[in-house]
Amino acid sequence: QTKATALNDIQQNTVKGQTWDLFKKLVEERLPDEVTIEVSHGEALYDQKTMVQALQLGALQFISPVVGVYSGTFPKLSVLVLPYLMPSPEAIKEVMEDPELGGALFDDMRAKGIEPLGVWLNGPRDIGRTGSKPVLVPEDVKGLKIRVPPGRNYVDTFKLLGANVTTMSWGEVPTALRQGVIDAVEPVPHAWAASHMYETAKQITRTEYIWDFYIVATNKAWWDGLDPKVRDTLKAAMAEATKWNWENTAEENREARATMTAGGATIHELTPEQRKAWVTAVKPLWDTLGTELVGKDVMAKLIEITDKYR
């Protein structure tokens, strides 16, 4: 009997939480005597700053954080979340399946004891602000007090656009926003809805400036030590859960937008010209930050692939 703990670092009633529950169900149906999976929802065990290390040390068997959480240990991964680089989930899929791109990044992870199992979807990041004037063009960000997650891809983007960037802890953000300590935030739709921040920052724009996703991973030593038959069953269950995850994320974010509109928020769409202005404004980062992270050649390849989906 193998007992494994999976950490779902957000709420259970999200698509990610339900994907973990599905994975557990599938595994325990197929390997009733061999494997039990405990899914720990929320941050009672480990938080964003500690879960990767807990996985590496074997205290956890499965994690699924956003890309940024890995970037302390694997800085190159930040390239996948450069602004406006990945236009859609399909682009993410092709990049991650490319042996020179996703494959090379995954090899880095394996070298440090982490076995990547797949990619789950989070959503496109949308900027929303308090007051009555929405953020529609890059100039609207100038002087705006905006909170972003720690990570150069986020911070450098808004610094480039002239915003007053802060990375205060997520726990402080709803209060800080309500009180006016900050003016704007930029999470994905389901996080917007769950945190109720649309009640305060009512002008939300579908900037979709980063398509955020999760990397599901396991402890490599534990995984390699499993009975091959068990491992294959786990792999198959993971593939099924992943398929379900991809099918349901768009719906989750659509529902979240509906909740926000019903709750009094206004959601603005970008015109093609406005979107173009955003891409032009942040593109310099592809050269500076992107090249610094992975080099010219890899960056060129990344742009070549993602261009197909633009």
């Binding site: 290390q53 590496q56 940024g68 970037s71 302390g72 240990t73």
Partner: peptide, 20 residues
Amino acid sequence: LYVQFLHMTGMVSVEAHIPT
């Protein structure tokens, strides 16, 4: 032991750019 492990993984603080 944990510090030794962090040193080995080469983890860097995202905000401060110094090794954790």
